[in-house]
Design a protein around this nucleic acid. Structure first.
Lengths: 245, 245
DNA sequence: CGGTATCCCCCGCGATACTG
DNA sequence: CAGTATCGCGGGGGATACCG
């Protein structure tokens, strides 16, 4: 009963399983088809490995996921069960509610590792040049040890690098972290910010021009928010002229 | 960042607000139109008052509820905001998932105070005799200090009493707590259990006969469960003969 | 009654080390 | 690399007292 609620009602039984710290986020990674431990972990860089391990065990006990020993190589592969897949609409509903109603972002919400991890899943590689393209990001306002990242698109396979990948950089992106995250979330218009040089691109002219089309942004970036406050109004993505901020 | 996740994504911002212990249960009580502190608290008898107070403050800060000073009398009245009402489908989704997939019940899930609180909200008073009807419940397998309860229906107004209300008892119900809860959840058939005398009624013949129609049971009692296990199969409510258990 | 402040214990979690 | 065990701290939350 330590973690339980002492109630037989289905809501509390569900909350017991799902409303512990990090749990829904782990499930969301599994819903995105992350299946290896480190794959999940990269999508949750602020979670400690030991806690992730513990949560995976609990979710297995609760019947939300199954783990299978990997035949070639070490470790396990994690997959949602039917019970876990049934959580898709709930997880999505949480995200929508968070988008519509959650508080504004603060500095501590801005982990650049998470931002780049998100980007590597949502690059529109069909619009990128064939062959290999190397993007470099440099975020001011981020901790010194994770300011710079690289995304390498190799014919549709995108890899995220925390250290220089060795290849020549094709396009370099320099921005304040908060500004970039707000573009990603849809609170600012990416093209506006580039035009205003708050996001600075360096590289061949045609790549710089195409760059905004490569970023698919956060899935909910186009959704209207309902909550009031500074970020209430969505950036109109097609606005040709914009007010100064 | 202590309670936060260090991520800007809407899912983690929502989880930050909603995935703390007890929080969703508090919201669910507000969705049931409980508005006074003690009204909410009676629906969550295992939650400490200080924690409820704290959660109400947090939910107000997060914009999920608003509190208004009561003009006549003490204390506040709590009401969901639009953001809070938007949680209705999520809370319901959690309950459905819990019904379909959650683990089996253990002894510590069976708080009789919670059971009786649930019943007082789901008595079909239209089917009960006009005037006043007093039901007495005596649950074996419950802690000594909360074995007996009374529900008083007074022309459609149902009150739950933890001490003898003073009026004469019209119908007395005696049962093992677990058996009764399993009827309430829909895992057993109420009429079967009465027929098998695992639930014993005492009172006038016509009240005994009508009693099963008064209990509306848990909202999800009729839903099929998806999870395997001992309680997998729903009791067929109309089964005329049943196996011994 | 209708809540809130205080105390204090315990356990959830992060850091670190370790193992196949 | 792919996780898991251990340790120690901090704060979450239960019990209790208190206050209007």
């Amino acid at each position: 009963m330590s973690r339980g609620y002492g109630q037989y009602c289905p809501l509390s039984l569900a909350a017991e399983v799902l409303c512990e710290r990090w749990t829904l986020l782990v499930v969301s990674r599994l819903l995105m088809n992350c299946s290896r431990f480190n794959e999940i972990h990269k999508g949750l860089p602020r979670m400690s490995a030991s806690l992730l391990s513990q949560r995976l065990l609990q979710l297995e006990e609760s019947g939300v996921l199954r783990r299978e020993k990997i035949t070639d190589g070490r470790g396990y592969s994690y997959h949602l069960t039917e019970a876990g897949r049934d959580l898709a609409s709930l997880v999505n509903g949480f995200a929508v509610w968070g988008h519509e109603w959650a508080r504004d972002l603060t500095q501590s919400d801005l982990d650049p590792r998470f931002l780049v991890w998100s980007m590597h899943l949502r690059l529109d590689t069909r619009k990128m040049p064939a062959g290999r393209t190397v993007l470099e990001f440099d975020f001011s306002g981020a901790p010194a040890d994770c300011r710079r990242f690289w995304l390498v698109n190799d014919n549709g396979e995108v890899e995220m690098c925390l250290t220089h990948p060795g290849f020549d950089v094709d396009l370099s992106v320099r921005s304040d972290l908060k500004v970039f995250v707000e573009c990603w979330r849809g609170f600012r218009d990416l093209r506006n910010e580039i035009r205003a040089r708050r996001i600075k691109l360096r590289g061949p002219r045609d790549l710089k021009r195409q760059f905004p089309d490569w970023l698919l942004l956060h899935v909910l970036a186009g959704h209207e928010r309902k909550r009031g406050g500074p970020e209430r109004t969505l950036a109109r993505r097609s606005a040709k002229y914009s007010s100064s901020d």
